[in-house]
Each structure stands twice: as structure tokens, then as C-alpha cells.
Nucleic acid binder design. Structure first.
Length: 421
DNA sequence: AGTCCACAGGAAGGGCAGGCGA
DNA sequence: TCGCCTGCCCTTCCTGTGGACT
């Protein structure tokens, strides 16, 4: 094909993006403002909490070490946004020489004592060769490096540990014990801790000394109600959407649906964003309540898909066993599932795990919301977990058999079903 | 009141991977 | 290359448990 002809065809043919670019736009500015990572300049209905935290942090502006703080509240109640808001405000004062630095760690992403220390220490080290490795060092060594780096800064450092309850449940309170007494070893710098947690009860797992040092101040974030969520959505909608792009019932519906989920502002914003993007893709200029309901279903399904896809192979095998068993009976016990799981393993030539391990994997699936499990006693029938799937069977089965390991299940299915009976 | 069932779940430890320093 | 470190996945062993049954 001549070069001239290629150019001609490129000009003549409609581009695949044309219909999306030329359609009337719903968004007037950056839609990233609807994502949880965006920290707005105003946080409606969090004035009291902001004031409390600012009051605590302001001690640092006068050269003293602020008290350690524990912040509690359910998902989407504005805990992280409030802390980051305060950090931004402190950064503005920093330019006038306040000397406060915030270091933020999400303990969901960085979820071992070692990796938290490694992550924090490396924040201060520019040269990659001088950084702590992902593993290989003793915890004491990484901790010493962190202390050394902090002391070099000659500043007040506020360490924010988000999702702290998860870290404590997973690894205990050793890290908090060390961090809460770090100031004893520092000469030039000071460290304060801000712990953010969903679960109020996680402090029961802390050593008494850690508990008292860490919880010098406590702030509790209550869930937003539908009215408050509406206010939040209206402010963001004014910033992001074109005039008249939302029908009148969209914001109240998003707020009402999110209020049902323990007042989760993150969910409310996600509903609004997904609904608007769906209307935009279909070339419409107005978002309707129907888009919001569709968005709700899409988000739920996407969450399940993402969770199932990222499961380890043995958990996928276990989940597939549950789906197979659920075709016979909706509610099942650990013993029921284990029998099916072993048959499935044999049919596709995989070494099965022990029942003890499977018990743990069932608990993990329960925590992820894929199944609902509760311990029940059947008297002489024994004590076991009663398990019910919380995901759609057909869609989840299709996702699972796409897995490399389980693809052979398709072939072995006929053989397997005879062994199951 | 004691027995029994079918596990739940804690504790301890093995094996492995990935990385470091000597 | 070897010893050491941490994290992770897993097994084995063990005790505890709730409620129906005897």
C-alpha cells in the first residue's frame, strides 16, 4: 500500500474515539475530583473534627510535640481526607518555617512491620543504593535507619498510619511499641503518631503501655446521613458537572444509597462518577436516576470480579468447590465443602490442602465478603461453620474457569461430577 | 451430668523465596 | 557461596466448644 493511500485512508476513515470526543460533554472539569484520592479545599460537616485535629497538631507549631492521636470511623466518613487536609494546611504554614512534616502510610498496602519501617525510612533517602531493601535486613536495622533519618531532619514528624487496625490484627503491636517510644532515642527531631482505624475494638489487642501512649487523644468520626452526603455531592457536582447535566433526583438517590451503606461518602461519589461516565459513553448529556441504579449494580459486580480474579489459586479452587456444592444445596458446612474440594483437586490433579488450612481460607473468603460464614453447633452433629455464598453463582463460575489452573476443570467436569456423587 | 460429634482455632515449626553482607 | 534475615504458606498437634443425645 502506497504511503499516499495510507494517509488518505487515515483522513477519510472516522476515528474510533470520534463519537466520544464529539458528544456533548457532561463533565465541565476534571472528573478526578470525584475520586477518593482528591482532597477538596472544603470538607463539609467535618468542621468539628478538623478543629479538634488542628488544635492537637498546632502544638507542633509552637515547638512542642503534639499528642499521639487515634482516629476512628467507618469507611468513607472522611478520616483520611481530614488528616490529609490538615497535612496540606500544615504544609502551607511550613513555607513560613513551621518545621512539621507528615509521613503517610497505608497499612493495607504496606502491611508488615518491616515494610512499614522500610517505606518510611526510604522516604528520606534519595539515593536508591542507600535505601533499605524490600527484605533481607533485620527489623532492628531498618528501625535504626528510620531513627537516624528522622533525627537528621531536625523537625517534627507526624507519622500517619492509615488502616492501623489491619496492621495490628495481622502483625501485633510490636511496631507501635517501638514507634510510641521513639522520642526517647531522638536528639534533634520529634515524632507524633496519628493512627486511623475502622474498628474501635482494635485497641483491645494492644499492650497497656502502647494503648495509653498511642491513645493520648481520640477523635471519632460518625457516619454521614443522607442530608450530609447530599451536601457533599452538591459541592463536588457544582465543581465537576456542566449546568443541568444531572437530573434532580440523581444526587438524592446517590446520597440515599450511600447512606444505607453506613454513610459512606466514598461510595456516594463513586456512584455519581460511574453513573455520569455511563451516560457520557452513551452520548447523553443528562444523567438520570436509572444511570445511578445501573452504576450501583456495575460497582457491585466489578468489586466481586476484581476480588475473585486476585484470589490465590487454592482459594479459587475452594470457591469453585463451594459453587459446585451450592448447585446441590445453598447452605453448606466446612466438612461438605472439604469433601467437594478434595474431589475437585483429584479430578484436576492438584494436591489438596489440609482441612485446617481450608478453614483459614474460608475465613479469608468471609472477610472479603465472598461468603457469609458463622459458627454453629448441631449438637451431636458437631460444631462447624455454616457457609453461604454471597456472590452470583454463574458469573463467578465463569470467572473461575478462566483461571489457568482451573481451566482443566472444564474438561474434567464430567468425570468429576460422577466422583462427586 | 456425662458423652459425643465435627469441627474451630491457637501454637509451633518446616520449607521456600528473595534479598543482604561477608 | 554461605549464613542470616523476614515474610509467606502450609502442616501437625493439640485443646476448646456448643448443644443434642443418653
Amino acid at each position: 500500500m502506497s504511503e499516499q493511500k495510507v494517509v488518505h485512508e487515515t483522513v477519510a476513515r472516522a476515528n474510533v474515539f470520534d463519537k466520544y470526543i464529539s458528544s456533548e460533554t457532561i463533565f465541565k472539569s476534571n472528573r478526578e475530583m470525584l475520586r477518593p484520592s482528591y482532597i477538596p479545599k472544603i470538607l463539609p460537616h467535618r468542621e468539628r473534627e478538623i478543629d479538634q485535629l488542628a488544635g492537637i497538631v498546632s502544638t507542633g507549631l509552637r515547638g512542642d510535640r503534639p499528642s499521639n492521636v487515634l482516629i476512628f470511623g467507618k469507611t468513607g466518613t472522611g478520616k483520611t481526607a481530614t488528616v490529609k487536609f490538615i497535612a496540606n494546611e500544615a504544609a502551607r504554614v511550613n513555607s513560613a518555617g513551621s518545621g512539621i512534616d507528615f509521613i503517610y502510610v497505608n497499612c493495607c498496602e504496606v502491611d508488615t512491620n518491616y515494610s512499614v519501617l522500610q517505606h518510611m525510612a526510604n522516604k528520606f533517602i534519595e539515593n536508591p543504593e542507600e535505601r533499605a531493601p524490600y527484605n533481607g535486613w533485620s527489623i532492628e536495622r531498618v528501625y535504626s535507619l528510620f531513627k537516624e533519618m528522622v533525627d537528621k531532619q531536625k523537625r517534627l514528624l507526624i507519622v500517619v498510619l492509615d488502616e492501623l487496625d489491619r496492621l495490628v490484627y495481622k502483625t501485633g503491636d510490636d511496631l507501635l511499641y517501638n514507634l510510641s517510644r521513639i522520642n526517647d532515642d531522638l536528639v534533634n527531631s520529634k515524632v507524633s503518631l496519628v493512627g486511623i482505624a475502622n474498628d474501635l475494638k482494635f485497641t483491645d489487642f494492644l499492650d497497656a503501655r502502647v494503648k495509653s501512649r498511642l491513645g493520648e487523644e481520640r477523635i471519632v468520626f460518625s457516619p454521614y446521613d443522607a442530608k450530609e452526603l447530599s451536601d457533599i455531592l452538591k459541592i463536588r457536582a457544582d465543581m465537576v458537572f456542566a449546568q443541568g447535566a444531572l437530573s434532580d433526583d440523581v444526587i438524592p438517590l446517590c446520597a440515599a444509597l450511600a447512606a444505607q451503606e453506613h454513610g459512606d461518602a466514598r461510595r456516594a461519589l463513586e456512584l455519581l462518577r460511574v453513573a455520569a461516565e455511563s451516560a457520557e459513553r452513551e452520548g447523553r448529556s443528562i444523567v438520570s436516576a436509572g444511570d445511578v441504579l445501573q452504576a450501583k449494580n456495575k460497582i457491585e459486580l466489578d468489586t466481586v470480579t476484581e476480588t475473585v480474579k486476585t484470589l490465590p489459586s487454592q482459594s479459587k479452587m475452594l470457591l469453585l468447590s463451594m459453587i459446585i456444592y451450592a448447585e446441590k444445596r445453598r447452605i453448606m458446612t466446612t466438612g461438605d465443602i472439604y469433601g467437594t474440594y478434595r474431589n475437585l483437586c483429584n479430578s484436576i490433579g492438584v494436591q489438596p490442602l489440609t482441612q485446617r488450612r481450608i478453614g483459614d481460607l474460608i475465613s479469608e473468603l468471609d472477610m472479603l465478603g465472598i461468603v457469609r460464614a458463622r459458627v454453629r453447633s448441631f449438637g451431636r452433629g458437631g460444631r462447624t461453620k455454616e457457609i453461604e455464598l454471597s456472590v452470583p453463582l454463574n458469573e463467578t463460575r465463569e470467572l473461575l474457569v478462566d483461571d489457568e489452573l482451573l481451566s482443566s476443570y472444564k474438561n474434567a467436569r464430567a468425570k468429576f461430577q460422577t466422583t462427586l456423587i
